[in-house]
Simulated assay, not measured.
Amino acid sequence: MTGSGVLAVLAEPDWLAREAAHAGRMRRWTVPHQERKSRGEKHPVLDFLFTYYSHRPGHLERWQPGPGVALAGPAARRFLDRKGYVETADGVVLDPSGFTERKAKTAEFVLGLLSATASRAPRLSCFGLHEWAMVYREPADSVRHGQVPLRLGSAGTDTVVESLEIRCGHFDAFRFFTPPARPRNALEPTRATQVTLEQPGCLHANMDLFKWAYKLDPFVPAELVADCFELAAEIRELDMRASPYDLADLGYPPVRIETPEGRAEYARAQAGFARRATPLRARLIAHCHRLVSPAE
């Protein structure tokens, strides 16, 4: 270790290249979103990444090295205009004092949640019914994505909900269920039971890896945030393709979970995302462990 908490020094050409690559990678998503927003357009699939999740597009584009990395060269001095960076003999680094008690508590919670989730086998039998439960017996003018029609209509959607078992253990999905749908859920997740119930097959738990990464910003490398974001973007497509909404005109063919074939298709895709989320969850667990126990 050189300097105060510095584990690595990045030469200016190296970190400039990483910064440019990250910004270009994220602008694939942020630029179209900002263009839609300027036109007053809503997108029922992609807006979720910027509305439900609170990480602003400008912050998503912004590269950061994470803790323990010094940025060498004169260009690094512009990082001093950001909150939480200081200059040392090795270069510009994140100020360790910026890792406040509040950040530490967040890291400890994330570590506990993700470790508990990783310890469980994935459950692949929910079939995305959470989205159906969010519109169950809902008046047409109150449906969340009212700009697109329900594929089976209101009555057909309600029939699907009533014909299949709903077993959603993700609190942040369950809390959007309509009142009539809540008693139909086999589980009753709460914020207090989140660590107990989340499991690695859940699409929303895997999308939330993005949330847990940016919650620790800037103490998580930008590339890890970006990896979690891109996985969340792909998962969101499946989430909405399996929903009751008709999104074919937007380029999202349905996964017809109301049929045995559709449920099998959903479970295969869900298993694939669970496998892809596993190494990202492990990276976040390892990173949180380093943040909360730096001496180990």
Rank of each mutant, 00 (worst) to 15 (best):
S115K: 14
F176T: 06
T106Q: 10
T157Q: 09
L111I: 13
R120P: 04
W132D: 05
H130E: 05
L187Y: 02
R123M: 01
H130L: 05
P179V: 09
R123V: 06
Y136H: 13
T178S: 14
T117W: 05
H130R: 04
F176S: 11
S142E: 09
A155I: 07
D141Q: 03
V148E: 15
G98N: 05
L111Y: 14
P139A: 06
P122F: 03
K105G: 02
F171N: 02
R167W: 00
F127W: 07
F177Q: 10
I166E: 01
R123I: 01
A186C: 01
R123A: 02
H130A: 06
R151D: 13
F174K: 00
A118H: 08
G169Q: 00
H130T: 04
L111K: 11
G112V: 10
L124F: 05
T159R: 11
W132I: 11
C168H: 00
P180M: 15
A186W: 01
A107V: 07
T100M: 09
R175I: 12
V110G: 01
S97Y: 03
H170G: 02
K105T: 05
Q147Y: 14
L111W: 14
V148D: 13
A181H: 07
E108P: 00
T106I: 11
A155Q: 11
G156A: 08
F127I: 02
A104L: 11
E131W: 05
T117E: 14
P183T: 15
A118S: 15
S125Y: 00
E101L: 13
V161H: 07
R175Q: 09
S97V: 15
I166Y: 00
T159K: 13
G169W: 00
V161C: 10
L111N: 12
T159G: 07
S97R: 14
G156R: 08
P180W: 09
L152K: 13
P139G: 03
R102E: 12
V110A: 13
L164S: 07
G128I: 10
A116H: 10
A140C: 01
H145K: 15
D158C: 11
H145Q: 15
V143M: 07
R182P: 03
C168W: 00
L124C: 02
L150F: 11
K105C: 02
P183L: 14
L114G: 06
S119G: 15
R137C: 10
S119A: 15
Y136M: 08
I166W: 01
T159S: 09
G156T: 09
S125C: 01
S154C: 03
E138S: 06
L124K: 02
E131G: 12
L152Q: 11
T157W: 04
L129Q: 04
F109M: 10
A133E: 10
E131R: 09
H145I: 15
T178N: 11
R175P: 03
G128K: 06
C126A: 04
V135Y: 07
C168N: 02
N185A: 01
F177N: 08
F174P: 00
E138P: 01
A186G: 08
W132R: 07
A133W: 06
H130P: 06
S119Y: 14
S125E: 04
T157I: 04
V160Y: 05
K103T: 10
F171G: 00
C168P: 00
N185M: 00
H170N: 08
F127E: 03
N185H: 01
Q147V: 14
R167S: 05
V160I: 09
V135Q: 02
Y136A: 07
L152A: 12
T106M: 07
S142K: 09
S97A: 15
M134L: 09
